[in-house]
Design a protein around this nucleic acid. Structure first.
Length: 264
DNA sequence: CTGACATCCTGACGGC
DNA sequence: TGCCGTCAGGATGTCA
């Protein structure tokens, strides 16, 4: 499932291949819940627009269209944003096709339809940016919060971009149990969490993200960070650091895996 | 306001 | 082999 590193990889890859190009034609599938803005509005804004920049904001891909605003793509769980030749057959579950002046198509494909397309004037994202937030601001995010630290990490209004994989992986590396109350973590623990979170996100970006279900980048290529996972997807296996059996619980409504020995 | 929980959707996987 | 039930999860909406 695409989180910050996967979305960043896709956004950068798409940017390289489409910036500066004109959107000549737009086709949309008509599946209602895929479109957060009316399809007619999306088509009107996109058709004839020039793509200035493609970047990541939280887990959202924001395509800047100059004075026309931004085209926002949220990949949900199984969404893919692909740059393809028109000669390549449309994959099943294609929901939008943008024909570009460079001759290629920008395609949005999403089997499970948790992804969303919309247009907006400008997009800032709901929360703070994990890669650039300072120490004091990071610590302040969790002050007084009674929910579990894992649930707090998943809350996009606090930090945006972190999902289930990198929440579990950063908590393991920071040696913090996922169910600890966020507001009761010490400053030292939160600073450790910030360091490990930034580290794991940057490392994952370097490796092209984690391909666990069907995540691929703009060229359809899989990432490699799943090979570095210490806990995510490893329920029932042994901790790579200490050999203790990893535990699986539900926190914040999400499957959560942790090491009861390493994480306190 | 804060937090907990159900809901959407379909492919993959396990069991028999 | 093939069928069927279960599971996965980001954002949103509802409820306490």
């Amino acid at each position: 499932m695409p989180e910050l590193p996967e979305v960043e990889t896709v956004a950068n890859g798409v940017h390289e291949r489409v910036h500066g190009q004109l959107i000549e034609r737009v086709w949309t599938s008509g599946k209602p819940q895929t479109f957060k803005s009316p399809e007619s509005e999306i088509e009107a804004v996109l058709t004839g627009a020039r793509i200035e920049r493609v970047r990541r904001v939280g887990k959202t891909i924001a395509v800047s269209l100059g004075s026309r605003g931004e085209f926002l793509v949220h990949l949900g769980m199984t969404g893919r944003l692909l740059v393809s030749s028109p000669e390549v057959p449309l994959p099943p579950h294609t929901h939008a096709v943008l024909s570009l002046s460079g001759g290629n198509e920008l395609r949005f494909v999403d089997a499970r339809r948790f992804g969303r397309l919309s247009v907006a004037a400008a997009y800032e994202g709901p929360g703070a940016e994990p890669l650039t937030i300072g120490e004091d601001d990071f610590v302040a995010l969790f002050r007084g919060r009674k929910l579990a630290i894992k649930a707090a990490l998943l809350n996009q209004a606090l930090l945006h971009g972190v999902g289930n994989i990198y929440a579990d992986e950063s908590l393991f590396r920071a040696k913090i149990r996922p169910r600890r109350q966020a507001g009761r973590l010490t400053r030292a623990e939160l600073l450790r969490l910030r360091t490990e979170l930034v580290g794991v996100l940057k490392n994952a970006i370097k490796l092209g993200g984690s391909s666990v279900s069907d995540y691929v980048d703009a060229d359809g290529v899989r990432g490699f960070f799943q090979l570095e996972h210490k806990v995510y997807g490893r329920a029932g296996e042994d901790c790579k650091d200490c050999g203790t059996g990893l535990k699986k619980v539900v926190v914040g409504g999400r499957t959560t895996v942790y090491c009861p020995m390493c994480q306190r």
